[in-house]
Design a protein around this nucleic acid. Structure first.
Lengths: 229, 229
DNA sequence: ACTATATGTGCACACTTGTTCACAGACAGC
DNA sequence: GCTGTCTGTGAACAAGTGTGCACATATAGT
């Protein structure tokens, strides 16, 4: 299939009867997909060239401009896609409901499963969160911010620490999510043939999340630290 | 000074009486410095070109090869430099001793001061930790790993949670350090003319660290989670 | 059915990039 | 002091890059 793409270069030839806008979106997605694929092979986004992407997508370089002004614009679109994945993940976890035993382990399991199902999205998110262009960083930060707020609201809804102000809940969630993203990056970097290391990393990850929630249970809304010794 | 560099391009002309090895190391450091400077201006390491670096360093492209085979090799040297900075930070904190009141706030203050004193090192560390080439990622992971172990040992020495196995202490420290690096990245990205936002971020950061240690105090060595409900 | 439009092609251009090679000058050891 | 060695220079090259332009061709609206 990849070879097929490379041989018959004409994107318009592959789907000659699908409506105009539909085909446009198809090649647009092919460009995005190409970028993701290239990134999952060691390359990082800022080092991708426009031509490289179009080549991988099976499209002539100039066709790129029909969809994006810039590589940066493609980057932003990518971030949006990753954000979408994140939100679907949240919905998935919500759907699973609130198990009575070992909530954390359960949620983490869903999370890890999701990470492995969308490795390219998570790698991109983790990698460009601090690395990419300033614009891309900001975009990712926004996405993560949304995620944090949604998660905090979810905790609200299930009545978790309902005595805390939203601010505090979001602080906690942000810590959790940072930990999640770091773990995703670590796990995706692991050689696939090391199930032992994988398990260790996962256990470590679970421990960290558990630790955070242990702290969260003890958190006091407004500790007046200056008078505390 | 930057202009001076660009005008008189000959590096050998600038310091004509300083010993051979010494001058070699000087231009080597200039190359490293150039890379750091370029990175602190939006560029990320993988997008740097060899020529760009030599240009900024005020050296002809071919001179690069006298110091590094590769850009990757320069990257590794950079990581080492960042690791050195991290270790000096740790020594600084150690030197400060163990204040009796509000240890966390105190340590965080030192940390933030350090981050602002070496912004380029911390940006690089945060950014290439997930973004760079696989080799660079691994190198950073090693440095961070050392840091984690040293910090865990320090906690040991001051008798913090001496009942816990080293493994658990390291898990805690790794969580702390992840949070530290994320915070560094966030803070360095902030527009400099927003002291209010800066303060909020710092407070949030302190809260997170505090939360982690709150959890750490409650952590049980071997919670048999399967029998716990 | 005819025409205008939008998507993808092909070619062109000016640049930048990494790397090779012969060369110049400063230093170190005899 | 002479000679060999090492660091930095300069010109050169092939390859890759972003982008502008005129062209094809399938589609949508009349």
């Amino acid at each position: 299939m990849s070879a097929r793409r490379k041989l018959e270069s004409a994107a318009g030839v592959e789907a000659p009867g699908a409506g105009r806008g539909a085909r446009k979106q198809m090649t647009r997605e092919r460009l995005l997909d190409a970028a993701l694929t290239l990134m999952s092979g060691g390359n990082s986004f800022p080092s991708l060239s426009l031509r490289e992407v179009t080549r991988e997508a099976g499209v002539v370089p100039t066709a790129f401009y029909r969809h994006f002004h810039d590589m940066d614009e493609l980057g932003l679109a990518l971030v949006e896609e990753c954000g979408l994945t994140l939100r679907r993940l949240l919905r998935e976890v919500r759907k699973a409901g609130v198990p009575t035993t070992d909530i954390i382990r359960h949620s983490v399991a869903i999370y890890l499963q999701y990470v492995r199902a969308h490795p390219r999205h998570f790698r991109t998110a983790a990698s460009e969160r601090n690395g990419g262009s300033p614009a891309m960083r900001q975009a990712i930060r926004n996405e993560v911010g949304h995620f944090v707020r949604e998660m905090a609201q979810d905790l609200r809804l299930i009545g978790y620490r309902s005595d805390l102000p939203t601010e505090a809940l979001e602080m906690i969630c942000s810590l959790v999510i940072n930990t999640m993203l770091n773990a995703a990056s670590d796990i995706l970097d692991l050689p696939a043939d090391q199930p032992q290391l994988t398990r260790e990393l996962e256990e470590n990850f679970i421990s960290q999340i558990r630790l955070v929630f242990l702290g969260a249970e003890q958190w006091r809304a407004d500790p007046d630290v200056r008078h505390k010794k």
